[in-house]
Design a protein around this nucleic acid. Structure first.
Lengths: 231, 231
DNA sequence: GATATATTAAACTCGATCGTTCAACATAAT
DNA sequence: ATTATGTTGAACGATCGAGTTTAATATATC
């Protein structure tokens, strides 16, 4: 065991040990839950001695809080960045929305994204304030950014939206609502097929509700990749 | 301490001690998480001695599994029962859907419902099979029941739905997608006003997408139901 | 090279918790 | 009244984990 300072432990600079600890801590916290996660395990997985953990972070609780807030920040930023690929013109709205949804979900289906979500759910009772902070750092930015994009599309006549904030929420709900079930709360891998089907269906419904220029008054906007939706 | 066998301990029948233990266990597990939940605390809250807990349930893990599956079963049954009030005729579709959504949500916003959801999220990594079982017992029934109701409404021409299963998922997502954010994962009470607004908006979008008889081609189906809806 | 700082392994303190054991007690049926 | 079963409080053994201390070592700065 003692994987101490073997050749496998590069002994890189000092600063990034903090990052290594945060990374390992996230994985261990998710796997074991806050209560059963052992600081020594975290130290081992980070390739670091236990006192080093206590040197960087005062105690277990402080480490946990930092893990959550750091992760929420990064995940939120990544999603907001993904929103950049939503064009302002209405060309191929369905395709653009599908790609956006795919990117947003890729950030949340991420090992890290699910891990954070599960951790927050898990420990929301013990750290009530923490969830609010994480939401402000992560979710809120995503919501606002998406709402802004949708509002611009609506303003140019490509979408029929009066409350962009609401529409953004509904878009996210439609497109990712099935994910917890499909992935068993992130513990099971989702097949690409199921994921694409879920996204296509969500985009489809979203456009049925908000598309400003229905190609045919009585038709669904797009046949949307006839997902068999087995189960 | 020793709140032993005072007048405060009714010493009721033997069987319902099992129920009392399950009830207390759910609350304590939710509050503390699986790892930090103390069996002794559960015993105290149930008004029962610790060995009694081990008498009814082999160990902590077995107790936990029983708590989850029991709760999922009951919550699912309650929601399915709530779906009964969705009428088959299309009279006042928006009102009926709103009431259904309200009832479904009341079962999930329930202390117990949130508790179960949070626990499953929390311990999904440690008990992977447990989540699947709970989903089968709880969520699946709800989904199927709602899909059946929607399919009947569609068949009678009141809704424009080709895949009722998908529509059911989208309805639930639209109507309850904002709840985790609003209630801070169930740790904060949601004001009735916010809840009604979220439901109304969800139903509104759902009908924009699936209503078979839009009252006006260019209008939203309902101005978000200013709804007195007592309570 | 000398000095200040960060890291390491190991051992330690201290408290908490699981699951068990046991003697006394309640309850129901015989 | 007696027997069988379930409950109770209390204490116990064993383990486990958070956080600290220490002496030695590696690194960075001067």
């Amino acid at each position: 065991m003692t994987t101490g300072r073997n050749a496998s432990t590069p002994l890189r600079g000092r600063i990034d040990k903090r990052a290594a600890i945060l990374d390992a801590a996230l994985r261990v916290f998710v796997q074991e839950g806050y209560g059963l996660a052992r600081v020594e395990t975290i130290a081992e997985r980070a390739g670091v001695a236990k006192p080093t953990v206590y040197n960087h972070f005062r105690d277990k609780e402080n480490l946990f809080r930092t893990v959550i807030l750091d992760g929420a920040q990064r995940t939120g930023d990544r999603i907001v960045a993904a929103l950049d690929l939503l064009p302002d013109d209405g060309a191929d709205l369905a395709g653009a929305l599908t790609r956006v949804a795919r990117n947003v979900i890729d950030c949340q289906l991420n090992d890290e994204g699910w891990a954070l979500q599960r951790l927050m759910y898990a420990e929301a009772a013990r750290f009530p304030d923490l969830f609010d902070d994480a939401l402000r750092l992560g979710g809120a930015h995503v919501h606002i950014a998406l709402a802004g994009r949708l509002a611009r599309l609506a303003h140019r006549g490509h979408l029929d939206i009066d409350d962009a904030d609401l529409a953004a929420g509904h878009f996210l709900a439609l497109v990712s609502g099935d994910l917890p079930t499909l992935s068993a709360l992130g513990t099971r891998a989702v097949t690409d097929h199921d994921l694409q089907a879920a996204i296509a269906a969500g985009v489809n419904t979203f456009l049925r509700a908000f598309n400003a220029t229905p190609p045919d008054p009585n038709r669904r906007p797009a046949p949307t990749t006839r997902a068999s939706t087995s189960r």
